[in-house]
Design a protein around this nucleic acid. Structure first.
Length: 486
DNA sequence: TTTTGAGTTGTTCGA
DNA sequence: GTCGAACAACTCAAA
């Protein structure tokens, strides 16, 4: 009467519906994780995500062991792995929390039918979203295409479900099935080991997630509205990778912050809570879009962008990736990404705008780079956000919104803390020129130890003319409307 | 059915 | 230095 509990992007024991349902069944549980790269195809986790996944699996493995259980690791196509394991264990139930990536959704629906046909109680639950993508809809019964009405609907609906407790023990089978050794999956880099910067910043796993939440709730959330765009301070939650892997759920965050705000002020949305939860809602909106418009990952939602004259220039793309564009705020961001697997949200917009509008490089190239380098790489968020900046997505940025990198730097990093942290070669430049070194006089560069073109690059494009070029290119588009959902 | 108000994150220009 | 307008036109959501 064994239950197989199949983990995915829900690597936590608290408030985990599939786990709670398995425990309630009161039969032996076999916890399982499948490394299903083949199923995921192009969207198998990238390098930074794999590093995180290793840590997260190790953490939940330990948590399960402390509760008398054991995480079973298998690799391959999920349907084949599950066929085998159902046979090995004679399990009569298979529970998991839902995923929404198009490849996973299709696979799991197929799998559920197949397994259920054999008499196995196959059930899926919601651990990853506040509301299922099909449960929020406009009055006409259609998916939302604009964020604000979506957010109003979501806020109005709130979080009804109460938190599910962490089970103190999981009933164990007499024997656990064989498991791969985590190390053998080689999810972490070895030669070269580029993960030192990641290790110094992040603690994958449920406990790391709870710690981040506590830290954010203790202080930063109440200043979130004012400080989230300040690059020199830690004004954001840094919960994104934990959320992606489901080490914490959005409902847990919602409950924790609204409860805190009520206690302190009587208003559940007080201070920065409303602003922060609207960012959580952006994540939900991205999933909403991905669910209803699965082409989101690789095709512009607005059809007219099919004809956009993107520039295929590997040298420009490479300069952007390596953080040698000559625009300090862009280069600082790209190096923060490379070093830590994460980038401040404001800077993500700046570098994305630069790639798309200043370099006219196809947004999908940026999407792919982020996919490989971000520890929080998330198919819904990544796709929706790149489309948003490119102007081809839902509720997209107007075409004339072109970020000026030196102005953005001056506005959001006025003291140069962020740029100096990631570009030490510019550290001695005075603030006046830090975000536009090409404007400094030779003597000022020399004094700061900067040799443009040698120790730090000259700008690879002139922003003013690049802006004009982008505006001209975007103007050629004629509205053709939304890509069909199917 | 028709109408209406609104739509995450910006920049530049000219008064 | 500061401020408002212009940068398009369209689509979405709801009344």
């Amino acid at each position: 009467m064994t239950t197989i509990l199949w983990f995915g992007l829900d690597l936590r024991l608290s408030d985990n519906p599939a786990l709670a349902a398995a425990v309630a069944r009161n039969q032996p549980i076999v916890p399982l994780f499948i490394l299903d790269d083949e199923d995921a195809g192009d969207w198998a986790p990238g390098g930074a995500s794999r590093w995180w996944l290793h840590g997260s699996l190790a953490a939940i493995g330990d948590d399960l062991a402390r509760r008398g259980s054991q995480l079973v690791l298998r690799r391959g196509k999920a349907e084949a792995v599950l066929d085998g394991l159902l046979r090995e264990t004679g399990a009569t139930a298979l529970y998991w929390n839902r995923r929404y990536e198009p490849w996973a959704k299709a696979r799991n629906e197929r799998l559920k039918k197949r397994v259920a046909a054999r008499g196995v109680d196959a059930r899926s639950f919601n651990a990853g979203l506040i509301h299922e993508p099909w449960s929020l809809q406009t009055q006409k019964g259609e998916p939302y295409r604009v964020f604000t009405p979506f957010w109003k609907a979501q806020r109005g609906a709130g979080v009804k479900e109460t938190a599910l407790p962490t089970p103190p023990r999981l009933p164990a089978p007499t024997d656990f099935p064989e498991s791969d050794v985590l190390q053998s999956w080689a999810l972490r880099p070895s030669t070269p080991d580029w993960a030192a910067g990641l290790r110094s910043v992040w603690t994958p796993g449920e406990q790391g997630a709870q710690k981040r939440l506590r830290r954010f709730a203790a202080r930063a959330v109440f200043e979130y509205r004012d400080r989230r765009n300040m690059l020199g301070v830690e004004g954001t939650s840094r919960l994104s990778p934990h959320l992606h892997f489901g080490e914490i759920g959005p409902r847990q965050i919602w409950r924790a912050l609204t409860t805190l705000a009520v206690t302190q002020t009587g208003d559940p949305m007080a201070g920065g809570v409303d602003t922060f939860l609207s960012e959580i809602a952006w994540r939900e909106f991205s999933y909403h879009l991905l669910f209803h418009f699965p082409a989101l990952t690789s095709e512009p939602l607005r059809r007219e962008f099919d004809a956009f004259p993107w520039v295929n220039n590997p040298a420009l793309l490479s300069a952007w990736q390596r953080g040698i564009t000559g625009y300090p705020i862009v280069d600082a961001g790209m190096r923060e990404l490379w070093t830590t697997g994460w980038m401040h949200n404001r800077v993500r917009m700046i570098v994305a705008s630069f790639l798309i509008k200043d370099l006219l490089v196809d947004w999908r190239q940026g999407e792919a780079w982020f996919w490989d380098t971000l520890v929080d790489a998330d198919l819904a968020n990544n796709s929706a956000s790149w489309q948003w900046v490119a102007g081809c997505g839902a509720d997209a940025a107007p075409y004339f919104r072109v970020f000026n990198p030196s102005l953005q730097g001056a506005n959001f990093d006025p003291a140069g803390v962020y740029v100096r942290r990631w570009l030490p070669e510019l550290a001695r430049l005075p603030n006046t020129f830090l975000h536009a070194p090409w404007k400094a006089r030779p003597i000022e560069l020399t004094d700061a130890g900067v040799a443009l073109g040698t120790t730090y690059p000259r700008p690879i494009v002139d922003h003013a003319s690049a802006r004009d070029r982008a505006l001209a290119a975007f103007k050629t588009l004629r509205t053709e409307g939304f890509r069909s959902g199917l």
